[in-house]
Design a protein around this nucleic acid. Structure first.
Lengths: 125, 125
DNA sequence: ATCAGTAATGATAATCATTACTGATTTCTG
DNA sequence: CAGAAATCAGTAATGATTATCATTACTGAT
C-alpha cells in the first residue's frame, strides 16, 4: 500500500472523532482540505483501510455504513430516534465467543454486537 | 392490516426455511405460486411484517438484507466463504444486555449479535 | 535529481438493492 | 352487494456503493 495524502487525511479524520461517521460525512469534511477529493476515493480507501484492519465498518439497521477509527474491540449502541452511534464496553465477551464456537461447529473469527434503543439525550425529550 | 394471499404466502415461506433468505430469493420462490408477484410486493410486505414483529431482519457484512421467520431471540453465524447464515443459541445474553444498559445510560430495547468466521462445511475444503 | 513503473486519484458512469408511484384489483364492512 | 381503503403488479426513481479510465503522484533504482 503506497502512501497518499488523501488516505492519510481520511484515517486521521476517522481517528479524530468518536462519531462513527458515514462515507458522505467523511467526504464532506475532507473537502475542506482537499476541495477536489472524489467520493470514490473515500470509498476506495475506506475499503482498503478496513481490509488492512486499520478501521472497522459498522453495519446497523440504517441503510448506510458507518466507520470507526478505533479498532480495539468494543461494541456500539444505536439510538433509533436520533441515529447516533455511541461506544459501549462490555466485559467478558470471550465467554460468548467461546460458547458460539462450541455451538456452531465452525471457526469463529469475529463478532459484531450492536445494541438498539433510545439514547440518554433522546430519553429526556 | 388487511389479509392478502401474497403476504400470507411470504410469511409461510419464510417460516418454512432456516436459510435466512434475501428478498430476491423470496421473490423467485414466490413466483412458483404467484407468477406475477412483484418484487415491490415482497419488499413492502417484508417491511410490514418486520414492523409488526412477525419477522426479523438480519444486517450482515453482505450488501443485501436477510430475513428470519423465527422471532424467538437467537443469534446468527455468517460464513465469510460461502455466505451461509446459520442459527446459534447463546445462553445468558441478558447479562450482556443489562451490562450495556448500565454502561450506556440510555434505554436498550434490543440487540443484534452476529458471529463471523468459517462454517464447518467450508472448513473441510 | 531524474526516470520508469505502477498505485492512487478525480471525474463520471454503472450497478444494484431498495423505495416510491400509479392505476387496477382485492378485501372488508355495513 | 356497494363503496372505501388496502394491496397489488408493473415500472420508474432513488441512493449508496462500485467500476472505469485517463491523468497524477509516489517510490525505488539509475
Amino acid at each position: 500500500m503506497r502512501y497518499s495524502k488523501q488516505r492519510e487525511a481520511l484515517l486521521s479524520l476517522l481517528r479524530s472523532t468518536r462519531s462513527h461517521p458515514s462515507a458522505q460525512w467523511l467526504y464532506e469534511n475532507l473537502r475542506k482540505e482537499f476541495p477536489n477529493i472524489s467520493l470514490g476515493t473515500v470509498y476506495r480507501n475506506l475499503a482498503l483501510l478496513e481490509e488492512k484492519g486499520y478501521i472497522v465498518r459498522i453495519h446497523t439497521t440504517s441503510n448506510t455504513e458507518h466507520y470507526d477509527g478505533f479498532v480495539d474491540k468494543h461494541q456500539h449502541f444505536v439510538c433509533r430516534m436520533c441515529g447516533k452511534i455511541t461506544d459501549v464496553d462490555i466485559d467478558n465477551t470471550d465467554v460468548i465467543q467461546s460458547q458460539a464456537a462450541e455451538k456452531s461447529g465452525g471457526k469463529i473469527e469475529d463478532y459484531s454486537l450492536i445494541f438498539y434503543g433510545i439514547c440518554s439525550e433522546c430519553c429526556q425529550k
